[in-house]
Design a protein around this nucleic acid. Structure first.
Length: 264
DNA sequence: ATGGTAGAGCATCTA
């Protein structure tokens, strides 16, 4: 089974490239973030034409998360299980796909450590931990994947000295991700590629950051231990961050997870 | 000269 996660930075702008990428890389399940679409505009028919069933959770111009699957998609849950009414921002979507409980995750950007948005980011991560604890068992087959806006270790940024006093690398943010790991998840990429620096999953559009290697690994695939033992490859597709003719890249590259796991 | 880009959408906001 092949799972992938990709912050597409507008599905409207990226759909042609996403379709081409699906045809080439053939994931069984693709989790997307930042679709920037309301539900009614999600291209269900286009994904169906490629053999994928869809679920989407979005309400407007920003955020928006999706799951497309060619191994079934059941028990779809938009947002947190204890949400009261529709959320202001759509950043979480979970479903059962081929026997794995998958979560498409888009953690809020903290902007600056002094900002109210930073506090909200930590609160949201805490709520994600609660969601996991209250809706899943640690021994189940779980994949919690997406844009966490946290670089888990210094080796996950191109130059840690450039990040003094910045979000994405603070002890509190890393501790919040650490709680997900303590509960029973594993950072899949580091199982097979324990040594950094890199690979990175995000590069700023500005200042030629991609070509200078100024990246960060903030897109994570966190899998339960049962799946961690079945990993055959985990890779970040940095080729997808390059420009391909008419296709303009997202600022994020997809993370691709291969498992010795038969979809059920 | 405190710089740069992309996407939403039409003035800025988000990242």
């Amino acid at each position: 089974m092949r799972l992938a996660t990709w912050n597409v930075n507008s599905l409207r702008a990226r759909m042609g490239w996403v379709e081409e990428w699906l045809r080439t890389r053939e994931p069984d399940v693709l989790l997307m973030q930042e679709t920037k679409l309301p539900d009614e505009d999600f291209p269900v028919a286009e994904f169906a034409a490629l053999g994928y069933e869809s679920a989407h959770h979005g309400n407007g111009r920003w955020n928006g998360v999706a799951i497309v699957s060619r191994v079934g998609i059941d028990d779809v849950r938009p947002g947190f299980h204890d949400d009261e009414g529709p959320p202001e921002e759509c950043r979480l979507l979970s479903a059962n796909c081929g026997g794995i409980r998958v979560f498409s995750v888009y953690v809020p950007n903290g902007r600056t450590v002094e900002s109210e948005h930073y506090v909200a980011k930590l609160d949201w991560l805490s709520r994600l931990q609660t969601e996991l604890a209250e809706t899943c068992a640690p021994l189940a087959d779980i994949a919690l994947c997406g844009d966490f806006n946290v670089a888990p270790a210094d080796s996950d940024v191109w130059d840690i000295t450039q990040f003094a006093g910045m979000t994405h690398v603070t002890a509190a943010e890393r501790a919040a991700v650490g709680e997900l790991l303590d509960w029973g998840l594993v950072d899949a990429l580091r199982v097979l590629h324990p040594d950094g620096p890199g690979p990175f999953s995000w590069w700023d559009y500005r200042a030629g950051a991609f070509h200078k290697g100024w990246g960060m690994r903030i897109d994570l695939a966190l899998v339960s231990r049962s799946l961690a033992g079945r990993l055959t490859e985990v890779a970040i597709d940095r080729e997808a961050r390059k420009v391909f003719g008419p296709n303009k890249p997202s600022d994020h590259a997809p993370v691709v997870v291969d498992l010795d796991f038969e979809p059920v």
